[in-house]
Write a protein that binds this DNA or RNA. Structure first.
Length: 314
DNA sequence: AAGTCGCTCAACCGCTCCCTG
DNA sequence: CCAGGGAGCGGTTGAGCGACT
């Protein structure tokens, strides 16, 4: 039996907001603030809406500092890098993009950026095969790693065994893009603890409660062996080879592939991108480190997060 | 011009987390 | 310590719109 609904859905208006409703909500929040009680707000503001609906409308649309559309390459890169590192923690990702909301970033990823990344991967596949044909006389895989086919690696159910993502779906996606936007200096380094934990022969662990995940992730981060930072995991499997089948399907998946050559990789050479690497890496372990970082973001309107959770924008 | 298809994104749903009594 | 309730989050849905046939 699920929890009781937050409001009587039959008596409140649903669906698109009218300009009049927007103005009511905007003026009320402007004059009184949210008061920390979204449930009571619609009644006080004279709105026949659910409190959650009001909160969403304000956060995602009516806030004065909201930006819509017009994502820059830099923002693309940040989103992909963070998605790579922390998965679908949209609120954390959005908190690193001033003016962007979690909903907006999520939509942008699902509708555009994901396809862009997949297209890049296919391009890399073609380049890889082309290279393999040219070096067909027993050459090694790229980055000196042994070429291992996905089927030779762990079963799909055992891949992405990292316990960082509580939701199976998001875990799959997060792992799938583990190599989509790798940064030699940041992403692989940040991925090291998870890669070190990954064991293709071991059964997938049951994800512990989130608080426990945070604690253990942070603990492992601080003890991660430097030798794991190599671009391959302990079994010698390139990162691409480990994770991409989750998204693309085995039939589309070639061993190897190199994302460093084209696409967003040149951005890594830019000073701004390089400068952000350190920041981004701090976000790798959601909650614990990302929280500390978000709390230190003075340029964002981020309220100090309560202990133990990374509440990003609100 | 009309119908169909695909895409976008605002909004909803249901869950977890955390606070409070 | 426990239960109830609110806040916040991530996944999903569907209306609206433009492109295409």
């Amino acid at each position: 039996m699920g929890r009781a609904p937050c409001c009587d859905k039959t008596s409140v208006k649903r669906g698109p907001w009218s300009p009049e409703e927007d103005e009511l909500l905007r003026s009320y929040v402007h004059n009184h603030g949210t008061g920390g009680n979204w449930i009571a707000l619609p009644h006080k503001a004279g709105l026949n809406r659910c409190g959650k609906s009001c909160r969403l409308r304000w956060l995602n649309y009516l806030r004065p500092d909201i930006k819509h559309g017009g994502y820059t390459e830099q923002e693309d890169w940040i989103i992909c890098s963070l998605y790579n590192s922390i998965g679908s923690r949209w609120s954390i990702i959005a908190s690193k993009l001033p003016g962007r909301t979690d909903n907006d970033v999520k939509n942008y990823w699902n509708t555009k950026l994901k396809k862009k990344a997949i297209a890049m991967h296919h391009q890399q596949q073609q380049e890889y095969y082309h290279q393999q044909q040219q070096h067909s006389s027993g050459g090694r895989g790229r980055r000196g790693a042994a070429v291992v086919t996905p089927r030779a690696a762990a079963p799909r159910s055992q891949q992405c065994a990292s316990s960082m993502q509580p939701s199976p779906a998001s875990a799959s996606d997060a792992c799938s893009f583990g190599a989509m936007y790798p940064s030699p200096s940041m992403t692989l380094q940040a991925a090291a603890p998870v890669l070190a934990r990954y064991d293709g022969t071991a059964p997938a662990p049951v994800p512990p409660p989130r608080a426990q995940q945070q604690a253990s992730a942070l603990a492992e981060f601080s003890h991660a062996p430097a030798t794991a930072i190599s671009g391959t995991w302990a079994g010698g499997l390139p990162l691409d080879d480990m994770f991409l089948p989750e998204l693309l399907g085995d039939s589309e998946f070639p061993p190897g592939g190199d994302f460093f050559g084209t696409g967003f990789a040149p951005l890594l050479l830019q000073d701004r991108a390089a400068a952000s690497l350190q920041e981004l890496s701090a976000c790798y372990f959601p909650n614990a480190q990302a929280e500390m970082w978000a709390a230190a973001d003075h340029h964002l309107h981020v309220k100090p997060p309560p202990a133990g959770l990374c509440h990003s924008l609100t």
